[in-house]
Amino acid sequence: MAVELEKILRPVDHPAPPFPPKLMTLASGEELVIRQIDREEIPDILPYVAPLLHVERDYYDIVSARVYAELLGYARHRMQDEYVLVAQIDGELAAIVNGRSMNAEVGVSLHTLALRRGLRIGAHAFAAKMEYHFDFLKQKEVLIVAESPIGFRRWMIEYKLEKRFGTPHELGGVPSWALTKELFDKARDSLVVGRRPVPEALLKKAQAAILPPSNPSKPPVDLLAATRALKDPTGTSLMLQRWTQEGKV
């Protein structure tokens, strides 16, 4: 009976080509490997997402909560046609990006979670995700939204997304924006970088273990500081929590 019920609850994924791993050099000189992970590796990254559930800055809390659920949904077969890419520096987890296919022609961008900020790590991972949709899944457009204003501005400015406001996005039902194949091709030369194949030693190191982020965003001292700050025109609660974190008070 349980198996019969599981057959009903578990979606059947459509066949999809793998994302070939790629390599790029960051401004820091470090090598970033972006590769696809399978369900078996999801438990390895969940512990690195969980601490971000209470980081309000840049909407890390909402993004990480949704990513956590999406990763579980993937690992436990409750999300159809999902894929997950990770970006690693020397094994260290630097970013997670994921998405899914709505149908053969339309992709859905789910999240871009940078666990190490700066150096365009999130932007490189996002570009790899879009490359997967257009170059490997051969889709015509990808529906995109962002919880964080910083992320939204970045995608908007860099890719000049088109409106698809008639289509509610799977993330919160908000109006969608779209990256079309044409827009992606225009941005390709300047934004989509990386080399293949990844040298075997680097790839093996990345596959051997997903190491924890070395400097993840820290949860606040006061979990509700940002919420309270909405009603606090002075912003003092936010300022105090940050300074407390930094050991300045």
């Binding site: 790029m24 050099t25 960051l26 401004a27 820091s28 000189g29 150096l119 490189h124 930094e246």
Partner: peptide, 26 residues
Amino acid sequence: NPFAHLHQPITVEGIIDSPEAMTNNP
């Protein structure tokens, strides 16, 4: 400097020499 805006070490290789330098450092 704990009060500095950017805590990102960078290298000449990463911003000038690497194949990705033009995107890292447009």
